[in-house]
Design a protein around this nucleic acid. Structure first.
Lengths: 253, 253
DNA sequence: AGAATAGTGTCTGTAAGACATTATGAC
DNA sequence: GTCATAATGTCTTACAGACACTATTCT
């Protein structure tokens, strides 16, 4: 709705126009960023949730997000990183913008939109802190396409979309490596893929694929277990996500 | 920046909170939607541009977009569709949200964000109309990763991202079919793929791939040309974009 | 007949799936 | 030695690329 009319601009220069610009001509939706922060904990995917201190949805569990602060944040990703770091201390996660939801009714305060980011963080880098606006914070286990509880606003549906994104990308990229600790075995990496994709894979195919991508480096060290020790690998320097030209199909039998 | 403080909410119910809610506590970025509308014209990709009537960037060419109208639009996609229909009359295009840009400096009026949609429209469905806010409208030919002119704001970079999205999806999906007229030959479809991907393909592989996807239906009719007539195909009902499990690799030689 | 485009046959190449085999260490 | 897990060997399968071939129409 137009709250008031701007002065006629027919003869104005752009500078004059901007000097006279009234940002309240159109009512604006509220604008936020929400992070779906995933990690690996006890061989399960977990998402980071905070318990809201304030209305609306007071005391409900929600994703890690908040309004864009137009003074603090240079861009959308800055808002995402600010919120992420505030809660986890992690500065350099895998961070990907997934999509933006904006509707009239998703927030009782009125038309609101949120840019959704997916963050994958190795668990050892995290230092949880509830921080301002939150009375609690925790890792909640992923079950299927969500968590076992209702979340604030439309956060359940946002989480679902991000899990879909993670799963579909795991089929043709090396995305899941961003969930791994600094050193890991190929079997451990395969288990993570199997967890994410919820399907078993042939270990020979998996090794061929991962080693062929040239993103892993042998550390020379071996993982001591109760049985035959396995080679520990780490991510090669300056290698980000690898895109395969063929999809994993998973075991047919 | 906080303009004023809300009343204490410690003992309030959510209803009381909402009744007292002051949306101007935080300054909000402006929120818009921009469409990159692509079509096929004279065997070339074209993007729809409008010439801006008003400041800022007055008289510059820009993408088809505008602010979210919180009274008119139920959600983000509604804004996209409203703008698209206003300029082209097209009601049911292929429409995909690509990403959202939001920065402090992309608009001289201050912090602003825009949700970017990619629309693919078959040219025969379009009825151009400049409409309010525009003094001209036209199809501009795509050259490489943009057009031959500078666009308003960051629209050149937005266009570039959408072209990247179209090209990368053409490698593993049937996306380009949404640019086709109602009936077309496989050779014509292949030409569109070659245009989008800027590389020649083997026609046998292409046919195998497309017919194997089970998204096309023979019309029984043949295209009359100067030489041997070709089978005309149409999209099968209720088939949307098909995802192949293997990428097009393009000709190696 | 010759030109041009439509469409097929079929061989090679690549990477995934299947699955048997060997390797290594704890016990 | 046995057990369990790590790692390799190698056959099959699916599908893309290469490219020669046949088919159909117009001139």
């Amino acid at each position: 709705m137009k709250k008031k009319q701007q002065a006629s601009e027919s003869e104005m220069s752009e500078k004059e126009f901007l000097d006279n610009y009234d940002p309240s001509v159109f009512q604006r939706p509220s604008a936020a960023v929400d992070n779906v922060i995933l990690t690996l904990l006890d061989d399960e995917l977990h998402v980071l949730l905070v318990k809201r201190e304030h209305h609306p949805a007071k005391e409900a569990w929600s994703l890690v997000g908040g309004f864009i602060d137009i003074d603090l944040d240079q861009d959308l990703e800055a808002t995402a990183r600010r919120k992420l770091q505030e809660k986890t201390g992690v500065k350099t996660p895998y961070l990907e913008q997934v999509y933006t939801v904006g509707t009239k009714g998703r927030d009782p305060r009125g038309w609101s939109l949120t840019a959704v980011y997916l963050a994958l963080v190795p668990h050892h880098k995290v230092n949880l802190e509830a921080g301002p606006g939150a009375i609690d914070i925790k890792w909640e286990k992923i079950k299927g396409s969500g968590v076992g509880k209702k979340l604030a606003f439309d956060h359940s549906s946002i989480l679902k979309e991000c899990l879909i994104r993670l799963r579909s990308k795991a089929v043709y990229t090396s995305l899941p490596v961003h969930l791994m600790p600094p050193e890991f075995t190929l079997s451990e990496l395969q288990s993570v893929y199997e967890l994410v994709l919820d399907s078993k894979m042939d270990h020979k195919s998996f090794r061929r694929r991962m080693l062929g991508a040239d993103i892993l480096q042998e550390t020379g060290k071996e993982k001591k277990t109760a049985r035959r020790p396995a080679m520990l690998y780490k991510l090669k320097n300056s290698k980000s996500t690898f895109f395969f030209t063929r999809n994993i199909e998973g075991q047919q039998s």
